[in-house]
Design a protein around this nucleic acid. Sequence first.
DNA 1: AAGGCGTGGGA
DNA 2: TTCCCAAGCCT
Length: 375
Amino acid sequence: MILRSSIAETLEPLPVSAAVLQRSLLDWYDRHGRDLPWRTPPDVLDPYRVWVSEIALQQTQVKTVLPYYQRWFDRFPTIADLAQADLQAVLKAWEGLGYYSRARNLHRAAQLVMERHGGQFPRTLAEALALPGIGRTTAGGILSSAFNLPLPILDGNVKRVLVRLIALPVAPAKALDRLWAASEAVVSFDRPRDLNQALMDLGATVCTARKPACLVCPWMAYCQAYQTNQQQQIPVSEPKAPIPHKVIGVAVIRNPQGQILIDRRPAEGLLGGLWEFPGGKVEPNESIAECIRREIQEELGIEIAVGEELIVVDHAYTHFKVSLHVHLCEHLQGEPQAIECDEVRWVTLAEIDQFPFPKANTTIIEALKQRFPDA
DNA sequence: AAGGCGTGGGA
DNA sequence: TTCCCAAGCCT
């Protein structure tokens, strides 16, 4: 008996038949689905538009992506345009969205689509997965949306919806195989595009992380978490490691012409390819001013005079927090060299908006414009 | 395979 | 203020 029930569980990962789930979800979606640009023709028929939307939406909410969406296609109307564009222009268009490897990979992948697929986004899962920045969820999202192919997805929304549907008693990361199987069982239908979009809408608007609206959920009657009143406890969360807090000294170095020194970060890693004001971590028993002078000597090989504080910027990344102590500095001697960065440049405040900067640095730029309104 | 990788918003 | 969460991928 034990053997039979464990086999049944393996073969039938859903609490009710897929057909019942599909019918109720699609009926809900037809009435309550969101109206989003990338799911409305002609955008949905353009795999490039669907692709860009899927990348931008990784770990990013719809509301954040919307203002970037149309602007992106004004700058890069086709895959060929994107492939030929400057990486710096691509990063500038992505500025503020975060996870900048997405923009670097999108740029590189556009070039690969030109080389491998004649400028047409591929129609097979294997070819899509071979492109940088496209994993199983993004591939399934693009191919189901653009070509109506019955491929499953497992993003944060779908994970949460399915975990509650089956009342999974462990953290989702520990049962990914089972969740993929559940997603595949639900999507296999004649409307895979709508079904995947409906799953994500359900997670984003009804089956939310906090205070899910179970009373208006089309799956209320089938949801094992709701039926056992565990919807607040599921999904089970994993313990998170504490994150470090770093204190950073940052230099706004000006020359007699009123120009400011900025540097471009190495192409890979944190904020790769973006520009910044130079600086570094304050060592134990070191003052902010000493730190800035030392870092600028090490990174750029020049001597500066550290002056007054301009602003302190507190910023939280995913894995650590920083406090940027920004000081106005004067260039004393030496030609700036790109020792720990890819490039250095003197720029005016009028020119500086052409360069892509991370959020913490745009805050510094705003403070500079207030301090020197005539520059 | 666990950690690196951004930012904005809500509680 | 602080914490948590949100359409993942890569190594």
